[in-house]
Design a protein around this nucleic acid. Structure first.
Lengths: 178, 178
DNA sequence: TCCTCATATGCAACAAATTGCATAATTCCG
DNA sequence: CGGAATTATGCAATTTGTTGCATATGAGGA
């Protein structure tokens, strides 16, 4: 299970609450990991019980209170063990491709509409990632090294989205020509 | 649940056994869908109970007997309903990126070895896809139209793998220069 | 005032996927 | 003759993920 390791990784970099993690996944690390708030809160509870992380209650004014989690030594060790092991190549399960494969059953318009909807979402993600890339590139040369690895993960997001959009253009061109 | 729809799509194109589906996923449609034999056999059983598919026992000599499944009218209808609806954009959960994000905790060699291992696998997949593309491109112009949509899904696999390998080169260049 | 949004956390039921185990026939190689 | 690979199917236990529901505060707009 890697949600555990994704959380350990993020908390090792910077402590935070479940809500913080949710926002980091949603706003910045969508190319990297996605998890619902239900998954995150439950996982934090379990990891806390296993002793991988600990939390302090933080009282806030004007906002609900937070539980701020940080990684314990045991958690750090778990992360180190995991990182020295090997991870599986990502399993691909792409429902959009299934639909296209079966596309002869419907009008091209149905497929075009679906592709368009997905294109909008992917374009928005790419824009987000490109903006983050600009943030990195405008850093001083002294600051860059510490963000180099996260930047490389961002590059994966950018290259992935660009490939998706290139593909969508091929599909569009074909479907419109029908 | 989309394994159901992936199976309906494949069986609608051509009837087959659980083992056939497993091989189609593994050898040809890995860019498209992946499922274990346990998942497939269980799903076939469920779909059979729901009336979406039916099977005939096929006795073989020299090999174990097979159950050859085909889609029923009800199954076809279920597929049509699904294809007219909309699918969610794929959820990304990439353990390799998590590892790279946390890469400051280990020697670059650890990351390089992992990247290399994944590169080999992705390169092999790309080669498979490119060979399939050649098969399509060498078809007569009269035959191409009926495979056009599957070909577009193949293009997704090719563009995706190429993007992955391009990214891996960036990562390699960075890690080696450390 | 009411509604929605953002912040912040959680449980319970259900669906799906993974891991481990199990069986059985034949072919192919040493 | 023994062992491994290929073909072919399946169950059970566990882990993960999804969907639905629930609660509470405060800010900002209609």
């Amino acid at each position: 299970m890697s949600l555990k390791h994704a959380i350990l990784t993020l908390l090792e970099t910077e402590e935070g609450s479940g809500y913080d993690l949710l926002k980091r996944f949603k706003d910045r690390l969508g190319f990297f990991w996605n998890a619902s708030h239900q998954q995150i809160y439950l996982q934090l509870k379990k990891m806390s019980e296993e002793g991988l992380i600990e939390f302090e209650h933080e009282t806030q004014k004007g906002k609900p209170n937070r539980k701020v989690y940080h990684v314990t030594d045991q958690g750090k060790q778990t992360l180190m063990d995991w990182i020295h092991g090997s991870v599986k190549v990502d399993k691909v399960n792409d429902a959009m491709l299934v639909k296209l494969y079966a596309g002869h059953l419907v009008n091209p318009e149905v497929l075009l509409a679906e592709i368009q909807k997905h294109t909008d979402i992917h374009q928005r993600m790419l824009n987000t990632f490109l903006a983050l890339e600009q943030d990195y590139l405008s850093l001083d040369d002294q600051e860059k090294p510490q963000y180099a690895l996260p930047y490389l993960t961002l590059r994966k997001g950018i290259l992935g989205e660009q490939a998706w959009l290139t593909w969508a253009q091929e599909v569009n061109a074909y479907l419109k020509q029908l």
